[in-house]
């Protein structure tokens, strides 16, 4: 088996494994496990799949994605849909929504982000990071401040645990970025600046 085939089959197999009933059940019994493990894992696996795309496909896609703009938009809009409590519930209860979840997170979130990130400039990358941190804080605050279950499938305690976890993750990423801003390099490496966009 060639390396490219391996690059393709390993993530695809892992996605199929995540969609298998035992793993699905294990990760979907808790809201925290679903939002912090299942959904991000699906997106990361989609990102790995991007490496398996043949060069001519990547070149063709790049022509429609200057500065990583389209890919970022696609990933943002799709992940926004999966942040709706109603969508999380439906992804557990309705088979067709579950199918949409297991396909769209790898192919419409992870893959376009992985393809577009290298094309994004410094400013856009900064905006993405800020927005990721802000989303963690927004959702975390929402989950902690809501006195009712947002998802009918999950308990209030689970929702609040997820709220604290999101605040912690948002805070962690913020500290990490702050550390890089204070202690890191301000100039881009020469290769980065010269690379065609």
């Amino acid at each position: 088996m060639s390396v490219r085939a391996l690059l393709w089959w390993l993530p695809a197999g892992a996605i199929a494994l995540l969609a298998s009933p035992p793993l699905r059940h294990a990760l979907e019994t808790s809201m925290t496990a679903q939002m912090l493990l299942q959904l991000p894992l699906l997106a990361v696996l989609g990102g790995l799949l991007a490496a398996a795309l043949p060069t001519h496909v990547r070149t063709a896609l790049a022509r429609w994605d200057q500065g990583g703009c389209s890919g970022l938009l696609l990933a943002s809009v799709t992940s926004l849909l999966w942040m709706l409590p109603r969508a999380l519930d439906a992804g557990v209860d309705l088979p067709w929504v579950a199918g949409a979840k297991f396909l769209s997170l790898p192919l419409l979130v992870g893959m376009p982000l992985a393809l577009s990130w290298p094309r994004m400039g410094f400013v856009l990358r900064g905006v993405v990071c800020m927005e990721a941190i802000a989303s963690c804080f927004r959702l975390g605050w929402l989950f902690l401040a809501t006195p009712q279950q947002l998802c009918s499938n999950y308990l209030l305690g689970d929702q609040q645990r997820l709220g604290y976890a999101l605040l912690a993750i948002g805070g962690g990423v913020f500290v990490l970025l702050l550390g890089r801003l204070i202690g890191g390099r301000w100039t881009l490496p020469a290769g980065e600046a010269r690379r065609p966009r």
Partner: peptide, 25 residues
């Protein structure tokens, strides 16, 4: 491409929330 994505995404969001009214089951 970006305009198409925003249009399709907006439509999907509109449908998924019954016209931005419904966010929970």
């Amino acid at each position: 491409a970006s305009l198409c994505i925003v249009a399709a995404g907006g439509a999907a969001l509109w449908v998924a929330t019954d016209g931005l009214r419904v966010f929970t089951t």
